[in-house]
């Protein structure tokens, strides 16, 4: 049966704590305790990337990551990416400019993965991009625009 514990972690740069049950996933806790809806459960099996969250600098599937393990971690979600309400991250700008989404349900996951890709590789090739992001699914199939957006974001980040 479910046991509960208190976890303390950093969420988008702010120290927070939450009381979580052992069955609860990271994506549920973000949604139910913090009203953060950008990472969202879709496949629930670690296969689509819609629930992507950055934990301690690494992308994880929020649908599979148990909230009990959050203690002492640093968590970043899509909501924490834009530097200000009226300013977007260059990756977000690039996704808009390239038209890299339709329904937008997969978009936060792609953007966070792109952020991570560009931190590792400042100038990824098309092939690098396709392989790196292949674990993220987009049923609207905005794939060509996503590849273009990642390249545009790389250019923006190198330029600024």
């Amino acid at each position: 049966m479910s046991t509960e514990r208190t976890v303390r972690f950093s969420l988008n740069g702010r120290a927070v704590k939450a009381h979580v049950a052992s069955h609860e996933s990271l994506v549920q806790v973000l949604r139910d305790r913090f009203d953060l809806f950008g990472s969202r459960e879709s496949c629930g099996q670690g296969l689509c990337g819609c629930c992507t969250v950055i934990v301690d600098g690494k992308p994880v599937s929020g649908c599979l990551y148990l909230a009990s393990f959050l203690d002492g971690t640093s968590v970043q979600t899509i909501e924490g990416l834009a530097p200000a309400d009226d300013r977007l991250d260059p990756v977000q700008e690039a996704f808009i400019e390239a038209g890299a989404f339709q329904c937008g349900f997969c978009t936060p996951g792609f953007i966070l993965m792109t952020k991570h890709l560009l931190a590792e590789n400042r100038a990824p090739s098309d092939d690098d991009i396709r392989h790196y992001l292949t674990g993220n699914l987009c049923r609207c199939s905005a794939y060509p625009e996503i590849v273009a957006a990642v390249k545009l974001a790389a250019t923006k980040q190198r330029g600024g």
Partner: peptide, 8 residues
Amino acid sequence: AAAKVTGR
């Protein structure tokens, strides 16, 4: 577009 890239 902005609402979709910010997860909102």
